[in-house]
């Protein structure tokens, strides 16, 4: 299916206050690929992801999702196929209860009520937050909010899953659970994160952003083992690739799959 392809060509974007955030970014992500997006703070990760669901429009260059270029006219189709988990879950949870919030997307897709209910239960279960169902979202802890925000996006069954720092604010168990969940999600996924160990285990391919340009794009194992490249881009080797803190021996930059 050409449905779940993401193609970005010469994308440039500056914020209204003239902060240049993206200066010529191009890549193509095939159907079913899982791609990690890494880069220092302010490298432009969030800005790039906001272009993939039409929250921002390119100043120059194009973004294509499947068969459609991202423009105002194609927004309904784009938003049906791209599910975005935003960086700050506070921005994403806006209904009076968790249940209503998760149902928000499916209701807007105008699904029948039983189907909506089913999706709400299923997606809350998959993020282990079904017990939060009746709670108001702004009363939850950071990690709980994150889980609910993810459930809210999964409830729309997107073809392409875009996540901005999904593991930040999660405790180790919740992080592990999320990683298992994402590993089971076979559609295209794009994950921006500082959690390089997660990227290493979830995404075979990694794109490194540095000051609004692509510094590297290739197999994760190679990219995340390149110490020079990572240092230049304001990052560090993932723990798993670093030498053992006790004996100092390195596993040679060959992370086990």
């Amino acid at each position: 299916m050409s449905h779940h392809i993401v193609e970005v060509k010469d994308l440039e974007y500056s914020y209204p206050d003239r902060t240049p955030a993206l200066r010529g970014v191009s890549f193509r992500i095939e159907h079913g690929e899982a791609v990690g997006l890494v880069g220092a703070n302010g490298a432009g990760k969030s800005t790039l992801l906001l272009h993939l669901n039409g929250c921002l429009f390119p100043e120059r260059g194009t973004v294509r999702i499947g068969d459609y270029p991202v423009t105002r006219q194609t927004l309904p189709q784009i938003r049906r196929s791209v599910g975005t988990v935003f960086q700050d879950p506070n921005d994403q949870l806006f209904m009076p209860t968790v249940e209503e919030d998760v149902a928000f997307g499916p209701i807007n897709l105008q699904l029948p009520p039983e189907e909506v209910e089913q999706r709400v239960v299923r997606s809350l279960e998959s993020t282990n937050s079904l017990h939060l169902r009746q709670r108001p979202p702004y009363r939850l802890s950071g990690g709980e909010k994150r889980s609910v925000a993810i459930a809210a996006v999964l409830a729309m069954s997107p073809d392409i899953l875009v996540m901005d720092e999904p593991t930040s604010g999660l405790d180790p168990r919740a992080r592990r659970r999320l990683m298992d969940l994402l590993a089971g999600f076979t559609h295209t996924k794009i994950i921006a994160s500082h959690d390089l160990d997660m990227i290493l285990s979830l995404c075979p391919r990694t794109i490194v952003l540095h000051q609004g340009t692509i510094a590297a794009d290739g197999p994760t194992a190679a990219v995340l083992a390149d110490q020079d490249l990572l240092l230049r881009s304001g990052l560090e080797l993932p723990l798993r690739v670093q030498g053992c803190p006790i004996c100092g021996r390195s596993c040679g930059g060959h992370p086990r799959p």
Binding site: G54, F86, A152
Partner: peptide, 12 residues
């Protein structure tokens, strides 16, 4: 940002 999140989930 909230408005963007609403639109992203199909709010019309």
């Amino acid at each position: 940002r909230v408005h963007a999140a609403m639109l992203a989930r199909g709010f019309d």
